[in-house]
Design a protein around this nucleic acid. Structure first.
Lengths: 150, 150
DNA sequence: GCGGAATAGTTGATGCTTCACCTATGTTGG
DNA sequence: CCAACATAGGTGAAGCATCAACTATTCCGC
């Protein structure tokens, strides 16, 4: 890390540090904002958003896991906790006896509807408020490029 | 999130999804690569890098926490675990009786030196391998802009 | 139909992060 | 000097993420 290794150029290093700093501070800020506003975690929010967009406000566990890019186990644990807080419910699946639905219940919908506008506004303001159209296009291009190489 | 709210434009939405996807997959990939290569976590690696760059291969807990942008408690817990694995050691501070040093020990240095070249190469390849100089400059500019607004 | 493979989902253990609180040492004003 | 306060650091509990193992159901070839 010090001398002879083919590390990054100065410009790359600045960009990398920017990425790292943003990658730790932006999620933290989002989480804090959401938590203070509505008592939801960022993860709770993601789950609720997907359920609210799903037909019948319910989704099969595996579909939900795929949509969120979470492991099944993680989702199962998280749903257990959200269930305990009354935000979602589990429901069995008649078509497939192994399956289970996660269902958005009233309290969960209310929490989401209370949190969403402020959250959306915050993202629009803080993340995109300072970016030009070119910046936004560049960001899409850059993230796409890196994603395709992972 | 669905209809009337002033959510993001299409271009912003694509950029935002790219950001979110990258923000979850890149750290995961980095972690996996590092873990498979050397048994270190990304966090272990960060700690070891900072210690290796510090004078005397040691740092005060608070300085280290600030450098990593970690909470003191988190660092303390993490150091405890790394100490148990023989990667670092604690040392008391003669100047300030409350203080403590975290010291890089031989096994930690060896682990770092084993991991660093491959890790660096991976980052250079995967993250920057597909980016033009303009992309890199844009990334630095964009991250800086957002960071300044958080 | 029936036995084995595949699939859906859950659970328990372990490590990590955060929060609130605690101890011990240092600092400062009277 | 010493009481009040600030600072450095550690600890325990609770939530979260990952991994391996487990149960229950369905599918598939015979």
């Amino acid at each position: 890390m010090t001398s002879d290794a083919p590390w990054l150029s100065d410009a790359q290093q600045r960009a990398w540090r920017g990425w790292l700093a943003l990658g730790s501070r932006l999620p933290a800020a989002l989480h804090r904002q959401l938590q203070a506003e509505s008592g939801l975690s960022l993860q709770d929010f993601e789950v609720l958003v997907h359920l609210s967009e799903a037909a019948g406000s319910r989704a099969r566990v595996l579909d939900l896991a795929r949509a969120l890019e979470w492991e099944r186990s993680r989702l199962s644990h998280h749903v257990t906790r959200m269930e305990r807080r009354g935000l979602v419910a589990r429901e069995e699946c008649s078509e497939d006896g192994r399956g289970a639905f996660v269902v958005l219940v009233d309290a969960g919908r209310a929490a989401l509807e209370a949190a969403a506008p402020t959250h959306a506004h915050w993202v629009k303001e803080v993340v995109f408020g300072g970016l030009s159209a070119e910046d936004v296009a560049a960001l899409e291009r850059i993230t796409g490029t890196i994603l395709s190489r992972i």
